[in-house]
Design a binder for these strands. Sequence first.
DNA 1: TGACCATATTCCTGCTTAGGCATACAGGTA
DNA 2: TACCTGTATGCCTAAGCAGGAATATGGTCA
Lengths: 125, 125
Amino acid sequence: MQLVKIYECLCDLTRLRLLNVLAQGPLCVCHFQEILRAPQVKISKHLAYLRARGLVVYERSGNWMVYDLPPKPTRDLRANLACLQDCARENPVFQRDLARLIKLAPKFADSSPCGCHSAGVAHSK
Amino acid sequence: MQLVKIYECLCDLTRLRLLNVLAQGPLCVCHFQEILRAPQVKISKHLAYLRARGLVVYERSGNWMVYDLPPKPTRDLRANLACLQDCARENPVFQRDLARLIKLAPKFADSSPCGCHSAGVAHSK
DNA sequence: TGACCATATTCCTGCTTAGGCATACAGGTA
DNA sequence: TACCTGTATGCCTAAGCAGGAATATGGTCA
């Protein structure tokens, strides 16, 4: 059942943080590293996990892999991502990630050939 | 983090079904067995799992253990249970469980000293 | 008291996972 | 071509979990 797959993705804190940050717009692996302050392997593996279950999509841009939420999520996924964001709003861990994203956004914008967030942050979906 | 614990509970189909049925009102183990058509050990273990993480509460009534959703759920739990019900509404597995619950309700009502559902089904929370 | 009932727990096995380290790969650049 | 950089993958270990079989527990009833 697809719903169970979604919850399997959501039952790890790192993945929750990835998804929460992604809700603000596409991002590449090295930026995730800075925002979550987590090693590359960890980020990359969790993204692979999410990818395999259809919770994220990605696109190569030179050396960079730019990840994003799926353009046409299922009803269940949409509902659960909305619920996650709702819960995350009150939670210090997620707040801190978003704060870092905002602080780093300008830096990302001009240092990143990958183009993620080059148009500025917070184009909420 | 409490949110992760919630998702850990939700990433198993049996537990999702238990919670979905529970949303209709308290129920004892043997009734879960009939509705889910699953062996006693399985039901009992998953209820223990949910209990340990605060997703359900229970009360002894003679030989029967009557389980229910917590009377004062956290914001996160409330949000996620609502989301689950929303997703479940469209899903045949959950629909079937609820159909069985409704069909069995009268039987439960008079054959159950445990009193669960003796006042009729569907007192939605 | 002893038998019985509903439920919980223990022990086992197989499977999945997180995390880290080392390494592989793919694209860009010189 | 060779090298650099960003990212992915393979291997390993420790931990957690689902499921089933057998057994234990605690309440009830005669």
